[in-house]
Amino acid sequence: MSDKPMAPAIDGWHTMEVKPHLIGTRCKACGSYFFPKNNDYCRNPVCDSTDFDEVELSRTGNIWSYTNASYKPPAPFVAAEPFEPYTIAAVQLEKEQMVILGQAIQGIGCEDLKVGMPVELVLEPLHETDDDIKMTWKWKPAAQ
């Protein structure tokens, strides 16, 4: 990677700290969490609230399941050449009672993961543009 500045791949979906958090919303009335952010209407059928707090979601969780991408996805995915397969994890967040998908960090394969394994959120490059390095959230085994 170059010395270009880092920028989020998708604006406002996560913080840019060393120990980053995904940014969601929480319904002020019923406490349901939403990711990505939902600021319009609560989707809990017994709640008609339209008021939300922006919240940082838990940055640790446990693996619900995992897989990989052996083939290059189509655009808008921006693939390195040659394409390197990457691993994907679905992670259960305890407090939020929800599952969030993301790539696993580089160098981690399916053989390194197990359902239930604790993981934490980190940032890694997704791809590079002429101006900056687009960063996104990835899951990293907590033991590492």
Partner: peptide, 22 residues
């Protein structure tokens, strides 16, 4: 969003399958 982040249709099938195994 999901294609940009690298999540295709088979990703979901893979997640369900791997969960059955574990």
């Amino acid at each position: 969003v999901r294609f940009y982040l690298g999540v295709t249709n088979p990703t979901y099938f893979g997640l369900y399958a791997r969960r059955r195994m574990d």
